[in-house]
Design a protein around this nucleic acid. Structure first.
Lengths: 333, 333
DNA sequence: TTGTAAGCGTTATCAT
DNA sequence: ATGATAACGCTTACAA
């Protein structure tokens, strides 16, 4: 079943069938209707490979993420896939883990599949050593690269990000304003967004004339129990703190569980702020105050930008979206 | 840059290049090395479309799920994608929502992309009215259809599922053995697996000579707060219950929060069992006893079965995997 | 408005 | 072991 069958049955040439297929205006209404009718009768579907060969594109976008089971990224993937499909694009998913080597490998693999663009979801794709990002910059000569919550400068590279620094700054500022004087900052990774959140935390302390102390800043695996254990250890070690700001709700849940275990009351004795406003935020009692990093807006903006690129529009290479602070019960504000 | 460039530079015919590309044994070692060398120099990558045209396949599997942001499905997608990639297959993701119409539409779309198989992740793809599944059965004439935690009988349709009925039966049985007499069953959907869990719950009651009462069985949106509200409503409505079995951890978290709100102590006064052993299970205090539905095993088995199908092996059309019960602190056992 | 024919870059079937 | 060459099914000048 191919275009010849349709053309034969409709009594037209394959060129005409192709025109109908591609919505060319140069077909009479009568012929178009006839061809469509025949296609329908025959249950004809154009062969994507042949089409790809001719057009050099197959309406497919590659989506890379480090781990699609992470709730934040899972949502990103959902919104990206839905958004792309709305524009008629398929999504090839690629979970890369976090080693640079596999990231590069899958990146090339995606390129070899001739995807029309690659979306890098999550801030794990920008390495600290600039030369480690060259493979991305280089590939951007061939196809647009979109970063969701990551930033990289380069021709044909577009970044959409959340203003994490400001969000963390504001949240820490509110903690201070509500009386906290010793705020712990817990984070999971040294990614671009991770570092921005940390800077925001430091901005707030400095802005209020409080000291930035290294012993109040800890990296922790993205894991409820690890965070809980870490805080218990710090607590029993004699560290005094009255607030916890985290780079992810998971860690904040751990902080709530630490408070329960240590018999500290929330928010009177300890304030806690999470990040991402995921469903973890409503798991705990009391429920978490959390920074909403606007993942849906990030994704739809990314896709709109991409479509702008495809249409040759003049699109911004960097778009920043403001976060929201969702106030619940782990803070006094 | 194509096969002709390589053949020219290597001084061989394109047929030979193609043979090298496909690992044909009919190439002398010398020629093979030469061609590979040239490919490397030129940075040649075969065109996937042309290849697809010739072979009729493109090493790509379609994965359908109702909602990739659901934690259970997010994990499924992760394991499926990783497993498939291990066998050299790409994954096209397709989030369908739950309306039959869009499910069919995307199913056809995936078929038109000439994927080598379609994996239906989650139990939302088998409709109660048999004729509503005909489109799947029919498509299976052309390509293998794999169900992850769903069951459908048909030629070239393969199901891998978790023994939810037995798992729910055992869990409810343990609740009863530990003293519960009035166990609520909360579920989210009427899917195949949803119904099995419910049957398991009923099996246990009947097995212990307890009555199955409709007023102890409720459907609830998959949402922490909805579950909490529902239980508060039932409680204030005067319903007496000392155990809650749920079809999803989300609902169980809601049950914990209800208990906190109602001042009931867990597990002394109220026992709770969740389902899926997701990270929600360790969010709460006390942590949830939960049924581990073995999503990773389900996915790897699905993929092994699929590879068996591709290799023409004699593979089972239905594989069942036993669930695990992870005992934590919301139960007395 | 429609048709003819030349690509697109492979694979696969013959020969040799 | 290697090479010509005909598919594969579509798009798209170019002609008519």
């Amino acid at each position: 079943m191919n275009i010849y069958d349709v053309s034969r049955k409709a009594g037209v040439s394959i060129a005409t069938v192709s025109r109908v297929l591609n919505g060319s205006p140069n077909v009479s209404e009568r012929t178009r209707a006839l061809v469509l009718e025949v296609m329908d009768q025959l249950g004809y579907t154009p062969n994507v490979f042949a089409r790809g060969l001719g057009l050099g594109t197959i309406q497919t976008i590659g989506i890379m993420c480090s781990d699609s089971s992470d709730p934040y990224l899972a949502h990103a993937i959902y919104y990206l896939e839905q958004g792309l499909r709305g524009f008629g694009y398929d999504s090839i998913l690629c979970c890369t883990g976090s080693s640079l080597e596999t990231k590069q490998k899958y990146f090339d693999l995606l390129r070899s599949k001739k995807v029309d663009a690659i979306i890098l979801a999550g801030s794990k794709f920008v390495e600290n050593r600039p030369e480690d990002n060259d493979y991305i910059i280089h590939a951007a000569k061939e196809l647009p690269i979109m970063l969701v919550n990551g930033y990289l400068e380069g021709e044909n590279v577009y970044s959409t990000l959340c203003d994490d620094r400001l969000a963390a700054h504001n949240a820490a500022g509110l903690l201070i304003a509500s009386g906290c004087r010793s705020i712990l900052y817990l984070y999971t990774s040294h990614s671009y967004s991770g570092m921005n959140k940390r800077r925001g935390y430091e901005d707030a302390l400095k802005g209020c004339g409080l000291p930035v102390r290294e012993e109040y800043i800890y990296q922790c695996p993205k894991d409820i129990l690890s965070a809980k254990e870490l805080l218990i250890k710090l607590h029993t070690g004699g560290l005094v703190f009255d607030g916890v700001l985290t780079s992810d709700d998971t860690l904040a849940v751990g902080a709530v569980k630490y408070a329960h275990a240590a018999g500290r009351s929330i928010p009177d004795d300890l304030s806690i702020v999470g990040y991402n406003n995921s469903s973890y935020a409503v798991c705990t009692d009391p429920e978490l105050t959390s920074i909403d990093s606007k993942i849906e807006a990030l994704c739809t903006t990314t896709i709109n930008t991409l479509m702008g690129v495809f249409n040759g529009g003049n699109v911004p290479s960097r778009t920043t979206i403001a976060a929201d602070l969702i106030k619940r019960a782990t803070t006094k504000f």
